[in-house]
Computed example of a mutant assay.
Amino acid sequence: MERKTGMLKLPPGFRFHPTDEELVVQYLKRKVFSCPLPSSVIRDINLAKFDPWDLSGGCEEERYFFNLKEAKYPTGSRSNRAAGSGYWKATGKEKPIKSSSFGQVVGMKQVFVFFRGKPATGAKTDWVMHEYRLAGAESPACVFPQRKNSTHSCTVPNGDWVLCRIFKKKRATDVDADTAGDETIPCNMIQFIDLMGETDRDGSHQPSTCLSDSSCLTESSDGSSGGEESDSRRSPLA
């Protein structure tokens, strides 16, 4: 186990890349109902205390966290979206996450973008968060079957937990910069120098007839021809 983050350290070459359904059913649902998780890959944080770039993990990697939602006002239902030096702003509408086996909605997904500063005057950043929550009470995601001889109580939800996937969006200019060194030279820009050419009396360069004359094949040191077929005439350059 890694002491700094408390997260499972995966072997080199392995990546934690679950689907939306797996995040909701295998991780978030188990977290909400206080059941054992498949692994200790996702840890708990208080998202309101951090800027996204200060979270554990590399900036080029996707990071996953459990966050216990807090109400913005004591008597309201709106969540507190303040975090670090800015706030998370929702973009678009929530999207349902359906079970691939039964087609039923098991969770909801909302996309957020991080802004530095205060609301209405904040500066947009490249940091993005996908927030996952369980579906409503009518969804099978809110019912966790109790196994026989189980020592864990998996029948009562334990807090308003959400699962967050946070990453830094790569700008188009960065992508262009990465591929700039891979540009190929157009064929019409490539010039070939004929080292076998001859110079005419007027100083112009004449291509060698070896480009079209098969008699210019040279012999190798063992006396055989360098080509697939030998020619009866010996090259004048041999």
Rank of each mutant, 00 (worst) to 15 (best):
W53F: 10
W53E: 12
W53P: 01
D54N: 14
D54P: 02
L55P: 07
G57E: 05
G58A: 14
G58M: 12
C59I: 14
C59R: 08
C59V: 15
E61K: 11
E62N: 14
K69F: 06
A71H: 09
A71Q: 11
Y73S: 09
G76V: 08
R78L: 13
N80Y: 09
R81W: 15
R81M: 15
R81Y: 10
A83I: 01
A83T: 01
G84Y: 11
S85N: 15
Y87R: 04
W88L: 03
W88Y: 00
W88G: 10
K89Q: 14
A90Y: 01
G92A: 08
G92F: 04
G92K: 10
K93Y: 15
E94W: 04
K95L: 15
I97M: 07
K98I: 07
S99I: 12
S99L: 02
S101I: 11
S101T: 14
G103H: 07
G107R: 07
G107K: 11
M108C: 06
K109A: 08
K109Q: 09
V111G: 04
V111K: 12
V111A: 08
F112A: 04
V113T: 13
F114G: 05
F114L: 03
F114N: 03
R116W: 00
G117A: 02
G117M: 01
A120L: 13
A120W: 00
A120E: 15
T121S: 08
A123T: 13
K124H: 05
T125Y: 02
D126G: 01
W127I: 02
V128H: 02
M129Y: 07
M129Q: 00
H130T: 09
H130W: 06
R133K: 15
